[in-house]
């Protein structure tokens, strides 16, 4: 489904990665801050452009040439919820959903399901600028899922949240990934997040290079480099 092999030259080093991801599969990216994990996601999302290589998603070429952001069937969730502050919660969730078309009733029913499952009904008419950080993450998740993207990119969306909320959001993500069948690439520093969202496949990056691949439990038990061992010891 996703087949990506690309290089992105940064000022300090080059990020070189190759990724193959099937439908409804997930992979984690782990490494120290500044190792290039977010760059990988930004290149797949189209926020940044690789300098070399190719990215294909389900028969659609994302790069090269670089496909416009609005044409990419990709969900992107970041640490900052980036809600549209001039809109209500409901308007944020339905922002990317076409308002017309034959499948509109179906879309409305899907939005209602999201609203119910993510407990957004009490907030629905509130201004997105006036809700709490935790609520904003739930709204951002609903907004991303409203379009049912086949690929979801998660760039530390749980950072700074309390454990209970993280657990709930992960439960929701696992539930939706089974319901919709999307694939996931997860960047996170938290072991329990990787353990739950992508236990079978994690890629470790150091200075933009892949230094280890495998199940998260294997990586934890046999880290390939001294830096990784140090990082894991700090978890």
């Amino acid at each position: 489904m996703l087949e990506a092999e690309f290089t992105k030259y940064r000022r300090d080093f080059e990020v070189r990665v190759s990724l193959q991801l099937g439908a409804a599969q997930s992979v984690g990216l782990f490494g120290a801050s500044g190792a290039g994990k977010s760059t990988v996601l930004a290149c797949i999302a189209g926020i940044e452009q690789p300098d070399d290589g190719h990215i294909d998603l389900g028969g659609l070429r994302l790069f090269p040439p670089s496909l416009s952001l609005y044409q990419r069937p990709v969900g992107y969730l970041t640490q900052e919820p980036s809600l549209f502050p001039h809109l209500s919660v409901g308007e944020n969730v339905t922002f990317g959903v076409p308002k017309r078309g034959a499948s509109h009733p179906e879309r409305l029913s899907w939005i209602a399901t999201l609203k119910d499952r993510l407990k957004l009904a009490p907030l629905w008419d509130a201004s997105a600028a006036r809700i709490s950080g935790g609520q904003a993450r739930r709204v951002a998740l609903a907004r991303m899922l409203a379009r049912k993207p086949p690929l979801v990119l998660l760039d530390e969306p749980f950072a700074g949240l309390d454990r209970q909320l993280v657990r709930e959001l992960i439960d929701d993500l696992i539930f939706w990934s089974k319901t919709i069948g999307f694939s996931m690439i997860v960047v996170d520093h938290q072991s329990d997040v990787l353990m739950r969202l992508c236990p079978e496949s994690v890629i470790v990056l150091e200075q933009g290079q892949v230094v280890q691949r495998g199940a998260w439990s294997d990586i934890c038990s046999a880290p390939a480099t001294p830096l990784l061992r140090l990082l894991l010891a700090q978890l």
Binding site: A45, G46, I47, S68, L69, Y70, R72, V74, G75, Y76, T78, E80, S82, F84, F95, G96, P98, R143, R147
Partner: peptide, 11 residues
Amino acid sequence: MLQKHAALLGL
């Protein structure tokens, strides 16, 4: 980033 998120939502 808000504009980029909006574009990624299909606009």
